[in-house]
Amino acid sequence: MESLEIQGRPAIAGRAEGVALVCPESLTGWGGIDPATGEIKDLASGNRGQSIAGKILVIPGSRGSNGWSCYYSITRVSGAAPRALVVTRVDSSSAVAAVGLKVPAVVDFPADADPCRLIQNGDYVIVDGDTGRVTIRRGE
């Protein structure tokens, strides 16, 4: 088993762990996911058909419509929320989504520690929203 730690900026406090879902091109706004199930509908996403529900969602930032964060915030009510949010570089839409989701979140990683490059789908990831530390375990 390999293990790697990367350090970002803590955004939403708390600790969560689980299987990573990495969307290196982000997900498009307004309809990019099904907010009831968390299923990715974005036609341009390599993760189309997978669900963000219960995952550690790893994205570079937001993409597309101002109607971006609302599709994530509502998963807190629908039960399809990810367990944690990891954002390479926070922007206004992904910050609003973090407030709405209320799950542990870490943002703003250094250029040599881009979580979208270092984390792979299926990695086991521990997100510490108090310290900003993200632990990546592969082969577990």
């Binding site: 937001s62 101002n66 964060s69 922007d91 609003v96 407030v99 709405g100």
Partner: peptide, 9 residues
């Protein structure tokens, strides 16, 4: 203006 989001507006 920033993009923000529907909730933030």
């Amino acid at each position: 203006c920033n993009s923000d989001g529907i909730e933030a507006a």
